[in-house]
Write a protein that binds this DNA or RNA. Structure first.
Lengths: 185, 185
DNA sequence: ACCTGAACACCGTTCAAGT
DNA sequence: ACCTGAACACCGTTCAAGT
């Protein structure tokens, strides 16, 4: 049976989950699919386009926040959920960061984040800017935790990051944002 | 005359400034220096170590904030200065992000940022977390602007980012952080 | 329509051997 | 002490030619 674009993308997601971005090469992906590297270029224009699709898949798995709570709580809940989903995927911050730069509102959870930022008190004119701040905080936190885990695995006398501590640190920053949301006065 | 580590690092900075991370390869750097690629490994352990040094050079050029203003103003001023310095250097966010993950307080401006966050009202226990939030906001803003510039140069019907607008958007997020700094009540 | 084979122009890193 | 030459194991992308 012929290869499909979906098959290419989902195998790429698999490779990323299991081995990280360093092993998600077009050649490695082709090997995994049992085709020649050139075959992939019939289904995707290039690696960048593929990675944007991969990011969309990762974000699509995140559940929407329940609508029956204050916007500020829903915002915190969703941000934590996005962070938790991404931190499990090696190099997720790089992949999602690339996709976010190309198309900030393409994935549903990121649109939800922007909406909740507005509902929680940000003026409409500042909605996208504050949403970007939240996204950067999530991606920065994810990248930081993963980098520290990598550093600890390489250098034996560096401490391995603790998931609970990392999550707490993230929420400290998040609460600063929520507190600052309403324009002064 | 023999090659020095400083020479290797500063030529790397040069290459980054002129052509970006894509052209900052160990082989390209060796060619620029007129040596064989293997020669570089006498002076630096690997590419990652080199990039951390490059980040330190980029950050070292940023001036410290004057001490005669309110901490919140100094914080905003320094964050804007760091952003402005980095946005001129292609892929600066990637390079500095890597270095920041490895050693968050190694560069002076980043230490100053953490100090000002504390002086501006963050509890000592939350200082590093909020400083990380500010750094992520800077790097995210820089990466975003540069990505949009690249996208516009590739795709003709995408608008080129305006430097003033980008700076304003950054300051919106920054002021949210500053407003949220003092713990509630 | 979809894929292979082969090529082009690259990578980071290692290491014996030279000076 | 410092560097070269040569190798190892890779990259992303293109494209004529095949089915």
């Amino acid at each position: 049976m012929a290869l499909s674009r979906d098959q290419v993308v989902s195998t790429a997601v698999d490779l990323l989950r299991r081995y990280g971005l360093g092993d998600l090469s077009m050649r490695r992906l082709a090997r995994e699919l049992g085709v020649a590297p050139g075959a992939l270029y019939w289904h995707v224009a290039n690696k960048q386009e593929l990675l944007v699709e991969v990011a969309d898949v990762l974000l699509a798995e995140i559940v929407s926040p329940p609508a029956d709570q204050p916007a500020a709580d829903a915002l915190v809940g969703l941000a934590v959920a996005v962070r938790e989903a991404l931190v499990k995927v090696p190099d997720a911050a790089d992949v999602v960061g690339l996709a976010y730069a190309v198309e900030p509102g393409a994935a549903r959870p990121l649109r939800d984040l922007a909406r909740l930022v507005h509902d929680a008190g940000a003026p409409a004119a500042e909605r996208d800017e504050v949403a970007a701040l939240v996204v950067h905080h999530i991606l920065g936190s994810v990248a930081g935790q993963q980098d520290r885990a990598l550093a600890a695995s390489v250098d034996a006398d560096l401490p391995a990051p603790d998931a609970t501590t990392e999550a707490k640190a993230f929420e400290v920053g998040l609460s600063v944002i929520v507190r600052g949301l309403a324009p002064s006065r």
